[in-house]
C-alpha cells in the first residue's frame, strides 16, 4: 500500500446518483487484488470539513494498469463533493488496502449477490477470474435495488459472459422484491447450486445471504461496508463482531475485528450474524 496523488480522468453520472470516476494512479494500479479498497480524499488536505478520507472499492483497473475506475453513489457530503470533481482535478489515495476475495479455485460455478452500489467490487473480480483462472467458469450475478436507477453496469457484466438475475423492489426491472428473495427462490428450486457465493451490499442483505449459505453449506464470502476513520488499522472504528480464532472458544466468545485490515472480505463462518 502507498499514499499517492491521483488525477481525475473522468467523472460521469451513469444513472441517477451513480457515478464512475477514472483516476490516473499508475504507482498503485498494478498491485490491486479483487475486493481491496482505497481511502480517497476528494478535497484538499487543508480542508477539514468533511474531515476523514472515504473508503471505495475498485470497479476496474483502466488502461495498461495506469489507473483505477471507482463506481460510487452520492449518499452524503463526501460523495457529493466527489461528484463535482472534473477532469484534471486531484484526489488523495491510500491503498490498495485490506484483504480482498480469496484467491483459489472457485469450483464449478460462482454466484455473486449485490445490492445497489455493492455491485462495484464484482466487475474487477469477474475480470480477474476470466483472465487468471477460467474463461468459462459459469458466473451468475444476482443484482438488486429499489428501482431501475439501481440497475447499473449490467451490460459490463454481460460482456464478460455473466448471467444476470435482476430484481427491483418496485418491480420495474426483473424479479419484484429483494435480491435475497430472488436468490432464495433459485436455491430452493435447486435452479442453481453454486460452488461459491460472494456478496456485497447492505448489512441486512449480507446477513440473509450468509444464513442461506450456512444452511445449504455453500462456501460464501461477503465484502462488508463499514464507516471507517482511517482505513489503515489504527483507529479501530470499523470493527465487526467475529468468532474467536481460538476454535475451542469460538462458540462462546467473540472479538471485534477490523474491517479495514482483516476484511473487508470475510468468510461468513467467521462473522457473528445474530449480533450484526
Amino acid at each position: 500500500m502507498k499514499q499517492v496523488i491521483g488525477k481525475v480522468l473522468y467523472n460521469s453520472e451513469i444513472s441517477q446518483s451513480y457515478f464512475k470516476m477514472g483516476i490516473a494512479c499508475s504507482d498503485v494500479a498494478s498491485s490491486i487484488l479483487p475486493g481491496q479498497f482505497f481511502m480517497l480524499r476528494a478535497w484538499s488536505d487543508t480542508e477539514y470539513d468533511p474531515l476523514l478520507n472515504r473508503p471505495f472499492g475498485v470497479y476496474r483497473v483502466i488502461g495498461e494498469e495506469e489507473g483505477v475506475e471507482i463506481l460510487y453513489r452520492v449518499v452524503g457530503r463526501g460523495t457529493r463533493i466527489m461528484s463535482q470533481l472534473r477532469h484534471r482535478d486531484f484526489v488523495g489515495l491510500i491503498g490498495p488496502l485490506g484483504k480482498g476475495f480469496p484467491i483459489y479455485e472457485y469450483g464449478d460455478s460462482v454466484a455473486m449477490i449485490s445490492g445497489g452500489v455493492g455491485i462495484a467490487p464484482f466487475y474487477f473480480f469477474t475480470q480477474w477470474i476470466r483472465n487468471k483462472k477460467s474463461y468459462n467458469l459459469p458466473i451468475t450475478l444476482y443484482h438488486g435495488g429499489s428501482g431501475m436507477d439501481d440497475m447499473v453496469c449490467i451490460e459490463d457484466f454481460e460482456a464478460l459472459g455473466v448471467e444476470i438475475k435482476s430484481s427491483t423492489e418496485d418491480g420495474s426491472v426483473g424479479f419484484k422484491g429483494y435480491v435475497t428473495d430472488n436468490l432464495r427462490k433459485d436455491l430452493e428450486k435447486k435452479n442453481i447450486m453454486p460452488s461459491f457465493m460472494l456478496a456485497c451490499g447492505p448489512k441486512a442483505m449480507l446477513k440473509e445471504v450468509a444464513l442461506m449459505a450456512l444452511k445449504d453449506d455453500i462456501p460464501c464470502f461477503v465484502s462488508i461496508d463499514s464507516v471507517m476513520g482511517c482505513g489503515i488499522g489504527t483507529c479501530l472504528g470499523c470493527v465487526v463482531k467475529t468468532r474467536k480464532k481460538d476454535k475451542s472458544k469460538a462458540d462462546t466468545e467473540f472479538e471485534y475485528t477490523r474491517v479495514c485490515m482483516e476484511g473487508p472480505v470475510f468468510d461468513v463462518k467467521d462473522i457473528l450474524w445474530e449480533k450484526l
Binding site: L52, S226, C238, F254, Y256
Partner: peptide, 11 residues
C-alpha cells in the same frame, strides 16, 4: 479488552 460495539465513530 474487547471494546465497545459499533458504531464506534462518527464524523
Amino acid at each position: 479488552r474487547k471494546g465497545n460495539p459499533a458504531p464506534r465513530i462518527v464524523e
